[in-house]
Amino acid sequence: MSPRVRMIVGLSIGLLVIFGWHFATVFGVIGNAPQTRSEFFIRLGIIFVGFLVVSTIVAILQDKRNSKLNMPDEREEEILLRTEQIGLYVVYAGILLVIWFSFAPMKSMQIVNALLAIVCVSEISKLVYGLLVLKRKN
């Protein structure tokens, strides 16, 4: 497994766990979902810190013997650019969906969670697409 693929797999698992936990509370599978603005911002803070922790762990697990391997080379940079493009398409599509559904009566917390879901799906799409392209070209 190349360092880049290892990093993508690590980040994907981290994102799935963090957002999985948040949406599990939203759908009442575990614990309680945030109901007020302050609760929601605390939750956002937890998600942010969680993502920082995952990124740090992934960085620690990178190949320290050769720091060059941790930097994307020209092919990987090209792939990363394309993944950013995919992420943007997902965000545009998601925003259009939220606009469409916001004409029906929606609670503000539903809109907020829908926007958070767009961020989550966009990030995961980027990682999955990057992983597929990297694996296919190997």
Binding site: S2, D73, R75, E76, L134, R136, K137
Partner: peptide, 14 residues
């Protein structure tokens, strides 16, 4: 200054 995976991709014409 590229990764081994890039050399593989070049050799395979990808």
């Amino acid at each position: 200054d590229v990764t081994r995976q890039t050399i593989i991709a070049i050799e395979q014409g990808h």
